[in-house]
Each structure stands twice: as C-alpha cells, then as structure tokens.
Design a protein around this nucleic acid. Structure first.
Lengths: 338, 338
DNA sequence: TGGAATTGATAAACCGGTATAGCTCCCGAA
DNA sequence: TTCGGGAGCTATACCGGTTTATCAATTCCA
C-alpha cells in the first residue's frame, strides 16, 4: 500500500485538494461537517504530510539544527550535552519539529555547516553553544538571516536571542560558601578563556575576593582537559602557601584534581576542599563524593527550544531569557580548613 | 539577495531548466562546453540545491536518522555515543547526508518515531543501537520498508544489515588474560539480559569457564546503573569465597565497583583485579587506572554509516560487516591474585 | 545518398503539498 | 427586484527541483 496523498483523500471525500488542505490544517474555508468527514478519512487512510512537499510550498522545514564544535574525545564524558539535547527535544517535540545534530572539529567547520544549512533550506533555525568572546558565529548567522538562540551567555545588544544562567551568581554562591567555612586561600582552575562563561566566572571571583577577605584567589585557565586539570592541581598543591580549597570549572577536571590530591597525600576534605562547577554522575561516583554546582540542564535545553521557536515565528523581537539559578549540592569534598 | 534557483541559472546561461539540472548532476544530455558554462555560472551565483525540492522530485531526502532509547541520565556519561555519533557523521559527510538524532524514553516511543519518519519521508534510513533479544524494532522496520543497519549484533537470518564486533572473542580475551594471571574465581557484573550483547558475553564466559579451570564464574545481571553495580560488588565481596577478579560490563559500573572495594578495604589490584568491558576517560581518571577493553567506536560508527548508505542504494542485499576486534588495554587494576 | 542512430537540447509533466483567485449559492438589506 | 456579501468550495498557479517525451541537427553506415 503506497502512502496516501491529499489528492487521494480528496477523491475519496469527493472534494478538491484545496478543501482537504484547509480541513487538515484547521483553517477556515470548509464547513464543520466537511472538515469532520475529511479528517476521518485522513485518519482511516493514516495520512501524514510529506515533509518535503510542505517545506517546498511554505518556507519552513520543521527542523532545527545544532552544531557542537568540539573534538569528539572531550565530548561525551559530560552528561551536559546529553541532558541538553533531551531538553531541546522535549521543547521541540510539542510542535513535532525535528533536530539535526552535528559534531564538528572547530568553529570554521561549524560556520560552513550553517552556510550549507541556510542555502539548502535544511533548518529553520539553530541553537548555539559555547559562546566565545567576539564570537564570529554571531555575525555570520545574522548575515545568513538564520534564526538562532545562544545557550549560556547573553549575546549583547543587537545580538541573537539567548537563554542564560547567571554564572556570576553561581560563582559567588560557591566562594561565599567556602569563605563561610573559613577558607581564605581559594584557587580556581578555570576553562579556556575564550569562552564567555569562563571570563564571567573569573571576574566574579576576582570581584568578590576583597569583600570576602580572601588572601589569594588566582584563576588559572586550562583547556578543560583532565591532563591540564591535574597538572595545575599538582602545581597548586606544591606551593608553600597552598590553597585550602579549589574550584574546578568542570567535573572532569575536579575528578582529576582529586586524584592528584590523593596521590600527593593531601586529604580531601581534611586538607583540601574541592568544588566542581558542574554536576554529573562522575562527582557522585567519587570517594569522597564531590560538592558540585548543579544546573537544570534539561530545562536549559527545553527553554532554548522554546525561545528558538518563538524567534523563528517572529524574528524581529530578540528574547533574552534567564533560566533558574544553579544550586550548590554539598557532598563530602568540602569542610572547614584544618 | 535572494537565493538563486536553477531557473535563474537557466536564464543567465540562456538554456532550459532541464539542461541546468543535467549539468549540475553530472548526467548526460548536455555538451561538455555547456556543462562547463552552467557550472561556472552556478558557482558564481553560489547556487545550492533546495533540499526539500530535491526530496520532492526524487524520493530521497539525503538524511538518515538515529534514535537512542535510554533515559537521558544514563546517557552521556559514556563517551560511547559521542564517539559513535562522530563516526557516523564522518561516514555520512562524504556524501553530505545529514543526521537526525532523537533521544527517547523507551522502545515504544522509538518505534513511533520510525513510523513518523517513514510516513513523513524525513529520513532515507536509520541506524539502530542496543539490539535486544527478539527486538520488535526489526519487524517494524521491515514492515515500514525503511532501510536500516544494526550496530552491534548480527540481526540473524533474513534480518537487517549490521555492523558488529565479536563480543564472544572480547570476553574470551579478558578471561583468558585473568586466568593466565592465575585467577580462578572470576565474577561478571553484566548489563541487562535483554540486550543481545549481554547474552553473548554471559554465554562466552560460561562456555570458557571449564576449559580455563575456573572454580566459579557467575554472571550477575544489572540495569547498567552505578547503584546496582555497587550493590552487586558489595555482595560479591562479602562472600567467604569472594572472587579475586571482577569483570564489569560498563566503565561506570567498574568505577562504582572500585569505590566499593576501597570502602571495604579490599585493595585493588592486590586483593581484587578489576576489568571494565568498555573504555573511556573514566577508567583513566581512576586510581588505580582500570584495565579495560577498548573498542574503536568512531570506526564502528563510520562503518555503520557506510553500510547504511549501501543498503539505501541497494535494499536487496543485506550486509553484515564485522569490525576490527576490540583490544584489552592493561592498566593498574589487574595483577596476579594474592 | 538515404535512412537510422546519436547528440544536445527544450518543453512540459510531475512530486505533494499551500495559497489564492474566482465561482456558485443563499441570505438579508435597500 | 436587485445588489452586496459571506460561506463553502473548486480550479489553478506555485514552490524548486527531476525526469521524460519530443525534436532538430548532426553523424554514421550500408
């Protein structure tokens, strides 16, 4: 049995194609009785719209895209993307819009993908992650007139729509907690400085340091890898006036740091408190389990999808939506300093 | 500047739409000179095919789909999917075919997605993962006449195309290594028995046990979660004749098991050897680092993409391709028994 | 040298929907 | 009685490609 088209339905119902189209899309132009009849026949023949045909007439393809520009090996360890994806999809599924996912090596390749998608009409809009300082993707997407929403980090004035969490507040909640425990030497093992969120976290710590009476609060940047996380930790713990607490920008680095501490005979949380700026099953698998900042990543994705759909519907208004604040989940890796 | 269509190119070149189509698709019907001229103009106008229009005429959409039916929280910890995805994409990108990814809760939802995709012509084919015993998806896909390739596990006779690694050999390489070290009490913390690969691993161990002179080689099934992995480990290590080596079906469970061992004062690898049936950064972050079975997941995905494209091109011939064998990466968690 | 085969191109149909102009019928108001 | 207008529907153009039937001009071969 071949797939039925609206022409088949029209024949069966004894009406024109146009009438069927009106009925199926709930637009005026047919009587309620006829509409009812057509819908019933469509149901019986299990008709489904042909996505390409629909995309050709109207100019929407009911599909959005997401490109992640990271080498594959650093992906995946983080549940972040899996949760984000699920969230995005739950936001899209309501409208039965599909998602195209692409993992590429770098930003240049990512921009290439946007160009292709735009010119081939493959997506109605895209979701951006990992916004960097002076991100070239923003201008490119504006030039392509491709609706987009940025996850994490306001785009700035006249920029793209966005969904963001307050990194500044998040960092404050961590260091204020550590300061309240009595820590005065806090180090921050940060990610790459090209990411806007890294910058915001670094600035937040620097600004808060004097107020909290911190003696020392260095932020050391890395490439987010476990290797660099471990190396920096080794350096920090070798200093004569070593920190009593370290904040890591990712859970993987925090775990690597914990390993270094154990290897150097530094007890956690006795001699050193550890906080991860991102939560996952990883932090819970450790002994001691790591205190971590938990974000509702699923909801993050869901809201991004919603904002994107609104942006596609009305490209003129730029939405900047702030999501729920992350909360600090205290586990076993933090305690007052010795 | 609006996007150019082949009609625009035709006008500029002073030929018909048909001629342009022939030229752009490298089919006979135009002279080399004309073809050259048309291609140059298309290049100048930076023409790209409108994917929907192409999909409507021909019956291919240059897009394949992949549905992962797992609750989001158990996803993502494993680099497995990230690597697999990258591999699939590298296999697809050569033909510039795009990938639709969907994460759903269960198999029922997954089948729903296949039905929708098939009826809406959204994909040319799909890639299946996590094949279960008597998997309902196989029959469904055959009924929908949707080309598909199964990753991991031959589909059996008259079934779908597949790309698979030899789980049996892999399990053997692990237990033979452990037996050679002198272990005679080996336990296997397996995944869910509904997965075919779980079954194959269990059987491989059971069959090999007598030959290797193993005193005891129980396989205990779990739901792949860290919680159950930990619980089973606790039980195993509490026995009077506890195993001297444990093989875990996933890296997450192996890490959880390592945590339990440390918590119970069982030294690894002194009193207990641990092997993970899957490698990732997780196993390397641990102290001791875990001995694990490494598979070339990227290549796995790449080959799956290739096989799928061949299946789409010629649905009649069913390909069953065996990939490279996994290798055992020995690290610090295995040693001769005390 | 004449008819057949080949080459290079065109015009038009087609894919499955959406959008729109227009037609018919009926009701109500001037 | 006529005209206006809306409801309900049809016919048709259109979206941007692919494909097929057709045709003229040229080449080939007996």
């Amino acid at each position: 049995m071949v797939r039925p088209t609206i022409a088949d339905i029209a024949t069966r119902a004894g009406v024109s194609k146009g009438a069927v189209s009106f009925a199926l899309n709930g637009r005026p132009g047919v009587s309620d009785a006829t509409r009812e009849r057509i819908l019933k026949i469509a149901e019986q023949m299990s008709w489904r719209p042909h996505s390409a045909a629909r995309a050709l007439g109207a100019s929407r393809v009911d599909s959005v895209g997401m490109v992640i520009a990271r080498p594959a090996r650093t992906l995946g360890v983080e549940p972040f993307f899996a949760h984000l994806l699920s969230g995005v999809q739950s936001g899209l599924s309501a409208e039965s819009i599909s998602l195209q996912l692409l993992i590429v090596e770098d930003t240049a390749a990512e921009i290439e993908v946007y160009r292709r998608w735009a010119s081939e009409h493959r997506v109605d809009g895209v979701i951006l992650v990992d916004l960097t300082v002076k991100d070239p993707r923003v201008d490119e997407l504006k030039a392509l007139e491709l609706p987009a929403v940025v996850i994490g980090g306001r785009g700035g004035k006249g920029a793209l729509a966005s969904v963001w969490a307050d990194d500044r507040d998040a960092m404050l909640s961590i260091v204020e907690y550590l300061a309240a425990l009595g820590h005065r030497r806090i180090a921050h093992v940060a990610g790459t400085p090209i990411f806007q969120h890294t910058q915001r976290r670094i600035r937040a710590l620097r600004d808060a340091a004097p107020r909290l009476g911190l003696l020392d609060a260095p932020s050391l940047t890395t490439d987010f890898s476990d290797a660099e996380g471990a190396a920096i930790t080794r350096k920090l713990l070798s200093q004569s006036d070593r920190p009593t607490a370290i904040v890591y920008d990712s859970d993987v680095m925090a775990v690597a740091g914990l390993g270094v501490a154990m290897e150097m005979g530094v007890s956690v949380p006795g001699d050193l408190s550890i906080v991860a700026f991102d939560d996952s099953i990883l932090t819970q698998l450790m002994h001691p389990a790591l205190t971590a900042l938990s974000r509702d990543t699923f909801d993050f994705g869901r809201q991004a999808a919603e904002v994107l759909l609104e942006t596609i519907a009305d490209p003129a208004t730029v939405i900047n939506r702030r999501t729920s604040d992350p909360v600090l989940t205290v586990r076993e890796s933090t305690a007052p300093p010795a």
